[in-house]
Amino acid sequence: MTTVSLRRSIGHLTFDHVLVRPETHRPAPATVLVFHGMEGRSDAQLAIAERLTGWGCQAIAVDLFGEAVSAGGAQRCADEMTAFLGDRGALAERLSAVLTALTEVPEVDADAVAAIGFCFGGLCVLDLARAGHPLRAVTSFHGLLTPPDWSVDGVIPARVAVHHGWDDPLAPPHDVVALGAELTARGADWQLHAYGGAMHAFMAPFAAQPERGIQYHPVVAERAWRSLGDFLREALPTD
């Protein structure tokens, strides 16, 4: 596979996105955007992007915080995430700007883009769908599910899949039910996979704080990954 830096500036900020694509002379038929969690753009994202290329698509590890924040370390990234959670309007603006920048990249077919996200990134891809951006599909893994304080009318165009650990303290059952009602009211094509015995961050091999409800679950992680493959094959064009 090949990696290409897609460093882009938005206003006074610089974002270090990374395109990962199969080693082939043909353009990839579809692109999957991979949104990070609290840790910022990371090697974990690149590993996910590399796995995605095995399905014939290309992937972009999205930098949502910007290089300056990532360079500030874990606490700076955590503070940035907290600020966005407190201002979902500002998050929507950042998401829209980053999405626009990436879909204008020559290597990307803007009509064949999906987005997946983990933890905070899961909330981000749901907010992209809520805003009505013309994505083919979005998938949230152990994401935060609460709606933003802004609303948009009309049908959600993206297909939506949510993978949720039932024992996730950051997304209790009433949030799950509320999300289902919200997506139904917006006419979305949506599906929910809830996994018993799984906590927050069940896809993250480094997650090991069960006392806080944060724990990797390899069996559930593999089930969720296989389901993602089926979902993307249904939603995206292939060779």
Rank of each mutant, 00 (worst) to 15 (best):
Q58F: 08
G180Q: 12
T31E: 07
R26C: 06
R76W: 03
G11V: 04
G122L: 05
V125Q: 00
L91H: 03
C124S: 15
A198Q: 10
A78Q: 11
T82H: 09
H163Y: 03
L13F: 09
T2M: 14
R41C: 15
D230Q: 11
A207W: 02
L52C: 06
G187H: 02
P157F: 12
S70P: 00
F202G: 08
V152L: 11
G11T: 04
V176F: 13
T100A: 14
A90W: 03
L192A: 12
V219W: 10
S70C: 13
L236G: 02
A188S: 13
I156N: 10
E182F: 14
P27N: 04
F231L: 00
F118Y: 15
P134W: 07
F141N: 05
D189K: 12
H174W: 12
D79H: 02
L46E: 14
H17L: 07
H36E: 08
P27K: 03
A185K: 09
V162R: 01
E104G: 00
G54Q: 12
V108L: 00
F15E: 05
A171H: 00
T24F: 01
A115Y: 11
H36A: 12
G89V: 15
V176K: 05
G56C: 06
A110S: 09
E23W: 05
L128W: 01
G143R: 08
S70F: 10
V113N: 05
T103Q: 05
W150R: 07
T2C: 07
S9E: 14
R186M: 11
A129K: 03
M199I: 09
C57R: 13
Q75W: 10
V69E: 01
A131N: 07
V160Q: 04
D168I: 03
H200R: 10
C77D: 02
A181K: 14
V20A: 10
D111R: 15
L95T: 06
F84L: 15
A201E: 13
I156M: 10
P22G: 01
D109H: 01
T103G: 00
V176L: 15
I156E: 06
T53F: 11
C77L: 02
A221G: 06
E182N: 09
G180T: 02
E67K: 08
V138K: 08
D167P: 01
R159V: 08
W225R: 07
A92E: 11
G11A: 04
D149M: 04
S96F: 05
E80R: 14
T103I: 09
G73R: 02
G56K: 07
V69F: 00
A235E: 02
R159G: 12
H164F: 01
L46R: 15
A59G: 08
L135M: 06
G197T: 09
L228M: 13
P205I: 07
V98I: 15
T100R: 14
R130P: 03
R26K: 12
E23D: 15
D127F: 14
S227N: 13
L46C: 11
G73S: 01
E211R: 12
V113R: 04
F118A: 06
V176W: 11
A221H: 06
V138I: 11
